[in-house]
Amino acid sequence: MSELRFNVADVAGVRLAVSPVNETVMSMWALASPIHYAVHLPWIDRARVTLRRPEVASRVRPLVELARPRCWLPDFLTPAARPNVEMAEQLEQIAATPPAVVVQDLLATTPRRPLGTFGQALLADPGGLLPQLVDAVRVWYDEAIAPDWPRMQALLDADVTYRAAQLAENGAGRFFEQLHPSLRWLGDRVVSDDPFERDFDLRGRGLALNPTVFSGRRVLWNLLEDSLPAGAYPVRAVGTLWEVTAPPPGDPLGRVIGPGRAVLLHRLDTAATTTDLARLTGMSAGNVSQHLAALHAAGLVNRSRQGRHVLYRNTEAAAVLLRASRGG
Rank of each mutant, 00 (worst) to 15 (best):
S325F: 07
A121W: 10
R217P: 09
Q132T: 10
E3K: 15
A30L: 12
W140R: 02
R70Q: 12
V102S: 00
E143D: 12
F196A: 13
V134H: 10
L73E: 09
P259I: 04
Y312R: 08
E316A: 14
T281G: 02
G173L: 04
H309Y: 08
L63V: 05
A17W: 04
L106Y: 01
Q178G: 09
M1S: 14
P62E: 06
L4C: 10
P259V: 07
L91T: 04
V191C: 06
A294P: 09
A230S: 01
R53N: 05
T24E: 03
V60A: 00
F118V: 10
P229D: 08
R255E: 13
L63S: 02
L107Q: 15
A246I: 14
R305D: 07
V160K: 01
D157V: 03
W43E: 09
S27A: 13
P195H: 10
L207I: 08
T24I: 03
V101L: 13
V263Y: 03
R279M: 11
E243T: 10
M26N: 09
A172Y: 00
E169R: 11
G239W: 14
M152G: 06
A278W: 04
V160I: 14
D226M: 09
G119K: 03
R138A: 15
R46T: 06
P147W: 02
L268D: 02
S284C: 05
A12M: 12
P211C: 04
D269H: 10
R174M: 05
V102R: 02
D251P: 01
L51G: 05
T274L: 12
R217F: 15
A9H: 14
D105R: 04
A96I: 11
T270H: 03
S304R: 15
V256F: 05
F118D: 11
R267N: 06
V14G: 04
G250Q: 01
G216A: 12
V85F: 07
L179G: 05
S19E: 08
E177I: 08
L277D: 01
D193C: 01
R5M: 12
L241D: 01
H266D: 07
L322S: 05
A319R: 15
M28S: 06
R46N: 02
V103C: 06
P181E: 00
C71R: 12
F176P: 00
A165H: 07
Q104A: 15
D251A: 02
Q178H: 13
A317G: 04
V60K: 01
T240N: 09
D269A: 11
L268K: 03
N210A: 14
L51P: 01
Q166T: 09
P150F: 12
T97D: 02
A154F: 11
W185F: 03
V18C: 13
L224Q: 11
R184G: 08
H266S: 09
N314H: 13
L186P: 00
R303Q: 07
L41R: 15
D226Y: 06
V134C: 13
L268Q: 02
R68I: 08
E3A: 15
Q178R: 14
W149E: 04
L277V: 05
T281Y: 01
D188H: 04
L321H: 10
V235K: 00
A297G: 12
D105P: 02
T275N: 03
H266Y: 14
A208I: 08
Y162L: 15
L77H: 00
N314T: 14
L77D: 00
H309P: 00
G258M: 08
W149C: 05
V191N: 00
D125A: 15
W72A: 14
R189M: 07
T245H: 03
